[in-house]
Amino acid sequence: MEKKKNILIVDDDEAILDVIKDILELKGYNVDTARTGREAIQKTRAKYYNLALLDIKLPDMEGTQLLSRIHRDTPKMMKIMITGYASLENAVDSLNLGADAYLMKPVETEKLLKTVEQKLREQEEAEMMSEEKVTEWIKSRIRKIESGAS
């Protein structure tokens, strides 16, 4: 049994939080929710999330602001921006600030799930890559020590 992935949903709309939480939980994820930017920051500090869905408009701060904060704190966490404002600037800004994907409200549930899955897979692959690299590094190090070179 694979370990359940943690997802944080940040949106000021409680209905959205509820529905998406239900859907994601149905798909086997651990889901937490945050209604404000501050709450989101607190939660990401307290717990590791594999992925966060971020609304671009929050009551206490701009979604992009939140994005850059949590990207600094937890760069490995996948961050998907969801916005009601369709604009290229928003999209580009978000991606530059470390967003991994950008979705438009209302996003079709299938598309949302697909994106979440894809991002988590990318994350896994990246982790595996880095694990392999570390293993390789350790191996080469041992070989160097064994060969007597310091």
């Binding site: 209905a15 529905v19 859907i23 149905l26 009601g84 404002y85 409200k105 996003v107 549930t109």
Partner: peptide, 24 residues
């Protein structure tokens, strides 16, 4: 309109999600 639009998209998002759950 833009403001209203944005605000309307949230319930739409919920409805879409709810429809998904309903189908399931």
């Amino acid at each position: 309109a833009a403001m209203v639009g944005h605000d309307l998209r949230n319930p739409l998002q919920s409805i879409l999600g709810t429809l998904y759950l309903l189908r399931e």
